[in-house]
C-alpha cells in the first residue's frame, strides 16, 4: 500500500523501482512454491485411496474423504491427538510462566551470582538433545516417570532458550513502569504479573508459538519415554502406522493433515499479538 502511494506521487521512483520489485516477487513466489509443495502433496495424498498413493498427480483422480472418516473413527487417533494436545498445552503454559519468571528476575534484579546463573542457563543451549536423552531417561526411570505424561513433559517444562528470550525482552521494559508499581504498593510478584508481563505480550506469543509447535511435533523423546500405545503422542502414533503392516501413506498423510489444524489455530490466535512497540505508548510521546 505504502509503496503504491509513494509510486503514484513520484513517477520517477515508480519507474526505477519496478525491476527490483519483479525480482523480489519472483523470489518470493519460488520460495512459496518450494514450501507449499510438500504440504499440497500431503493434502492431496490424504484425499487419494491406497491404490493411487504412488500416482504423483497433485489433483487426485477421485478425491474422497474416506481416509478422514477412517482416521477419525479410529479411537487411537483421537487418543493420540488429545495426548499431544495435553502435553503441548501443559508444556507451553509452564514455559510461559517459568521462563518469564526467571527471565524477568535475571533482567530486572541485581543479585550476587546473577551473571553466573545466566551463563549456566545459556550454556545448556550448547548441548544437543541427543546427548541429553540418556540422562533424561535414567532420571525418568529412577523416579518412575517412564510411560507417564509427566515423563513426556518434564524435560521441556522450562527451556534455556525461552528464558533467554524473555530476559532479552524484559530488559527493554523501562524500570519506571516497575517503580511506579512499587510506589503504588504492589508486591514484586504482582508487578511482574500485572505490569511487566502485559508489556511483553509479543515475546510471550512468540514463545508460546515456538513451544507449542515444538512439542506438538516432538517425536524423538516421546517415542523413547512411552511404551503403551495409549500414551503415544500424535507423531509417535502416526509413525506407528508406518511400521505396523505395510506403510499406509494415505493414512499417515491424513493424520498429518489433521495434525496441522491446531498449529494453524495457535498461530492465528497469537500472531496478532506479535506486534512490536505496544510498550512505547505508555512512555513519553
Amino acid at each position: 500500500m505504502t509503496m503504491n502511494v509513494a509510486a503514484l506521487e513520484n513517477p520517477v521512483a515508480r519507474r526505477s523501482i519496478r525491476p527490483g520489485r519483479i525480482i523480489i516477487w519472483t523470489l518470493l513466489f519460488l520460495g512459496g512454491v518450494v514450501m507449499m509443495t510438500p504440504i499440497l502433496f500431503m493434502l492431496s495424498t490424504s484425499l487419494k485411496d491406497a491404490s493411487q498413493v504412488y500416482d504423483l498427480r497433485l489433483i487426485p483422480e477421485a478425491p474422497s474423504l474416506d481416509n478422514y472418516v477412517a482416521v477419525l473413527s479410529d479411537g487411537r487417533f483421537l487418543r493420540w491427538f488429545l495426548n499431544s494436545l495435553f502435553v503441548a498445552v501443559c508444556v507451553t503454559v509452564s514455559n510461559v510462566f517459568f521462563d518469564s519468571l526467571v527471565g524477568y528476575t535475571l533482567a530486572k534484579f541485581n543479585f550476587r551470582g546473577r551473571y553466573i546463573v545466566f551463563i549456566a542457563i545459556l550454556s545448556t543451549l550448547m548441548i544437543p538433545t541427543e546427548m541429553l536423552v540418556i540422562p533424561w531417561y535414567l532420571m525418568a526411570s529412577n523416579f518412575g516417570w517412564v510411560d507417564t505424561y509427566w515423563g513426556i513433559m518434564f524435560p521441556g517444562m522450562m527451556t534455556a532458550f525461552g528464558t533467554f528470550l524473555m530476559k532479552q525482552f524484559f530488559e527493554t521494559v523501562p524500570d519506571e513502569f516497575l517503580e511506579a508499581g512499587r510506589v503504588d504498593g504492589l508486591n514484586e510478584f504482582t508487578i511482574w504479573w500485572r505490569v511487566a508481563m502485559p508489556l511483553v505480550t509479543p515475546a510471550i506469543s512468540a514463545l508460546a508459538i515456538f513451544t507449542f509447535l515444538g512439542n506438538w511435533t516432538a517425536f524423538f523423546w516421546p517415542l523413547i519415554v512411552t511404551n503403551s500405545r495409549d500414551l503415544y503422542t500424535l507423531p509417535v502414533g502416526l509413525s506407528s502406522f508406518a511400521v505396523e503392516q505395510a506403510i499406509q501413506w494415505e493414512m499417515i498423510m491424513t493424520g498429518a493433515s489433521i495434525a496441522t489444524i491446531p498449529t494453524l489455530i495457535v498461530f492465528l490466535l497469537l500472531q496478532r499479538y506479535i506486534v512490536r512497540g505496544v510498550m512505547l505508548a505508555g512512555l513519553k510521546g
Partner: peptide, 12 residues
C-alpha cells in the same frame, strides 16, 4: 506517590 518524568502509565 510518585510521578515520573516519562509518565510510566501502563499502555495496556
Amino acid at each position: 506517590a510518585m510521578v515520573f518524568q516519562n509518565y510510566a502509565i501502563y499502555p495496556h
